[in-house]
Amino acid sequence: MKKTFTNKKKMRGYREFLYILPFVILVLIFAYYPLYGWIYAFFDYRAPFKLSADNFVGFKWFISLVSTAVKRKQIWVIIRNTFAISGLTLAFSWLPMIFAVFLNEIKFRPFKKIIQTATTLPNFISWVLVYSIAYCLFNSTGMVNTVLQSLGITDDAILFLQSSKHVWFTQWMWLTWKNLGWSAIMYIAAISSVDEEMFEAARVDGATRLQCIRHITIPSILPTYFVLLMLSIANFLNNGMEQFYVFQNAFNKEHIQVLDLYVYNLAMGSGGYSVSTAIGMLKSVISVVLLCAANGISKLVRGESFL
């Protein structure tokens, strides 16, 4: 009697597994199977042909990245751009936190609501739309140039988007414009979970506003900040390519090509599938190492991992 019961339970377990099997297969195909594509990094792959033992080249592509002075310079430029843009993001990673802290200080609810609605909006549009907006505002007859000319600040239109100057900074600005309000939401939620009585008690003791912020609000959201900081360290090399792809042109290419974009341009632009796979592979490995390192730091500092 008992045996049939456990058997039945087991059967049920298998059946439940069969239900999810199609989905597991989807995951295997689209997330795990592409990992097999890493072998392209060890072959001399030309687009329409199949891989064969003849064009196995071992570590040729990895070595070729640093083999000549020209290539070393090229890689250096790419790494410099990646570090500059990621570094800027990292250096200003406290901005959303401060944004949330001071938003919390506004006691007039409708105003708060409007600000939140307005500032999260850009997060939901695509980079293509951001670029389109940038184009409409900053091209030679756009709003910015019109205003500058009518104020007499400049006579000729300034070609902002075709400029090779301050590329890292402007890209960081667009990223911030798009993400700031959204990133602040996490902190706003964290602040709202702080016990209101703490603030009351502090005020009774005569604490000023700044003291309340410094001793209550900020300490209560630092753990959230820490986790997000670790995650952005783990993603240091992953800037994504969409933003930089849409903003790139012949003038700013030297400064805008980050690793992700370089990988794309190399493969799709000049058919260098193998070498760009090699770069992507290196990047993935370093990213996993960074993730583990960040997790390790988190364990050391806060005694818990975030994975």
């Binding site: 087991k10 995951v27 594509g37 599938y273 994975l307």
Partner: peptide
């Protein structure tokens, strides 16, 4: 009750932390 539930769950969740890269 599902057979090897934890394994399948981890298999799915792990995909958040890595990707093969756009070219592969």
């Amino acid at each position: 009750t599902m057979w090897k539930r934890k394994l399948w769950y981890r298999l799915v969740i792990a995909t958040m932390y890595f990707n093969a890269g756009i070219i592969p």
